[in-house]
Amino acid sequence: MKKFMFVLMAGLFVCSQAALAGNVTGSAAFSGTAPAKTEIVMAADPTCASLHTEPVYTEEAVVNSNNTLKNVFVYVKTGLEGKTFPAATTPVSFDQNGCHYMPHVTGVMVGQPLEIINSDSTLHNVHSLAKESKEFNLGMPIKGMKIKKTFEKPEIMVKMKCDVHPWMNAYVGVVSNPFFAVTGEDGSFEIKDLPAGTYTLAAWHETFGEQTAEVTVADGQPATANFSFSG
């Protein structure tokens, strides 16, 4: 009976929290002239070059066809002070695939595993240039090799690079809560189940910098936050 009551109370608590939370959606618009695409030359490693039949471009500024930006990291900058969130246990995938990092921008919670994978039949090193957490540089010479790493402190953003292939770089946003997202092919994002309250959301882009927006989440109502970048 005690066990049943505990489960019931826990269920009610989760439901009440969900009811007091809302989703935030929005997009990262881009205006101005889109930077020219830079084609990557992979001749330094024939294995990398052989993996692509089409040209591969750098990803420091990807403007989508609907004039939005891909790879914008959106996170809660202020409004969650004093609240703690347990680190998610599900690993975030970070793949070296086609001598490219996939995804180019991602997010992870403090303490949440980042699962680094080598899907290529060439060797890579994965070098985290973290300043707040311990920097690491790991060799991944074997196809299919996986390594899990965690970050100890929040940091916007941690640059990751492969020193073997100088064109390979990526960014990981390390935050202390689960409320973050990355814009995709249509420039949109969605942050789910953000507790009711008023927040400053920030949108970070590696070339165009950071924009902020105020957003209020009330009683399970959806909220919107749009960002605008210019080139």
Binding site: T122, L123, N125, N137, L138, G139, D163, H165
Partner: peptide, 26 residues
């Protein structure tokens, strides 16, 4: 070439005496 950390171990290179000489490992 910014290749100083292309081989992350020492004194061996990727655990070998002679790793594949690809990219900045060369």
């Amino acid at each position: 070439h910014e290749a100083g950390l292309a081989v992350p171990d020492w004194p061996l290179s990727y655990g070998q005496m002679m790793p594949p000489m690809v990219g900045n490992v060369f």
